[in-house]
Write a protein that binds this DNA or RNA. Structure first.
Lengths: 233, 233
DNA sequence: CGCGTACTTGATATATGTCAAGGCATGTGG
DNA sequence: CCACATGCCTTGACATATATCAAGTACGCG
């Protein structure tokens, strides 16, 4: 793990570990981050190429990561090669935080991606002394838990419902209704537990129902958010 | 929440928050439990009848619970009435632990069940002072996260694979290969994201393949653990 | 401009859902 | 002790959503 040279490019926005978490939370700034904001933890900045592995399942969890720019997917492989994507992590989000000693998922850069990493051990040592840090680690993990539960809920729904839920989870660009997808159809399929063909057909179908527009394959305009929400649950 | 009178009946076994968590961990004793072992937290003991609600989704999370005897299911409802069971909690297991202010699932007793409850607020206050308690809260939440991820992984598999995985998660009675199921076929179906008919047919099929025996509807003997494991992943 | 990858679309197969009936326990009252 | 009622589970026949297999098409990149 930890490949490639150095090339910083931080992005700022507001901080939050929301009590009712959004599956893909808003970007978060280093500014007052209880972990990545601390000079003594000496965060390093690392660039990854498209599809580069950041860490692998069952590897020792040496670092804790935050996406600076780009996007990351975490996933698990089944023995027969099927891939289940656990989640997508956008700019500002923490990933790779484990209470155990090893990573429970693999992580890869989706496109060109920059991440920050801090060593896990000093963070945990700090948490033992600093209640705020401990509480933050807990909150981040609890947020991931909620995400995972919501994800599991997704996987029992119909294809339309899954795709609609996915679209509503994705954060539109700047308050607009347009979503720029960093990930491929295959990534979406593996996240939703569907095939790439079913995802593609469902997009086409939602476009036919005037719920969305598809000006480009990786750009989606939410036309009828209400309608999508009704599908969602 | 918190119905019915008092009627203690603790069960003891070994303590652990395992770093590689088992979906249905071994029973845990009060003895050295960092939370339920503390007299100052004044755990109360509560009995619930079969199918009684322990807490509801979105209710304020006032208490944190531990199963003493019996079993508990946590679940979420979809708007159209479908029910997704998030997990089953057996004797010794913690449930209802939330970092946010409200419960993310509902919880019900499966059969007659006794639970212990401690107020959440003093536990969190204690965690701010005591690093061990903070670390324990984190570990329990992280274990739940792993469970939820494994559950999500289940939901993309075939019916046979899901049922096999479920059986392997259930802890046999006393080192034997016999499992006593506290929950109904409907509960299993809602946990696995299948219909009750598919669950029933799959059991019959596994019996035909000599992988299991079904001496009674709620008693299952694992005949070919290896074979089940091969299905599992 | 041309190549390769990613995406869409079509035809068909199949696993699982749905609907309906029947069997098997378990408990209750005669 | 038996008859019956009730709820839970199993089995069967059929429907259907999604997977699979197979072309096509468009897009991004050199």
């Amino acid at each position: 793990m930890l490949k490639q040279a150095n090339l910083a490019a931080p992005i700022g926005d507001r901080l939050s570990v929301r009590s009712v978490p959004h599956p893909f939370p808003q970007a978060v700034g280093t500014a007052h981050d209880p972990i990545f904001g601390r000079a003594e933890l000496a965060a390093i900045t690392l660039p990854y190429d498209r599809n580069a592995e950041i860490f692998g399942e069952d590897e020792p969890a040496v670092y804790l990561y935050r996406v600076v720019s780009g996007a990351v997917r975490t996933y698990r492989l089944l023995s027969d090669g099927r891939r289940q994507i656990c989640g997508f992590h956008m700019a500002g989000e923490i990933f790779g935080l484990e209470a155990g000693e090893t990573h429970s998922c693999s992580a890869e850069a989706i496109g060109s991606t920059v991440v920050q990493a801090v060593r896990r051990a000093p963070v945990i040592a700090l948490a033992a002394r600093d209640g705020d840090v401990a509480r933050y680690l807990w909150a981040v993990t609890a947020q991931e838990l909620q995400r995972a539960q919501t994800h599991a809920l997704l996987l029992v729904k119909s294809a339309q419902e899954r795709v609609a839920a996915f679209l509503l989870q994705m954060r539109p660009n700047n308050g607009s209704n347009t979503i720029e997808l960093p990930m491929s159809r295959q990534d979406i399929a593996d996240y939703l537990g569907l095939t790439i063909e079913t995802v593609s057909r469902t997009f086409t179908q939602l476009e036919g129902d005037a719920k969305i527009e598809l000006p480009a394959t990786r750009r989606i305009v939410l036309r009828d958010r209400r309608g999508l929400q009704e599908l969602n649950s």
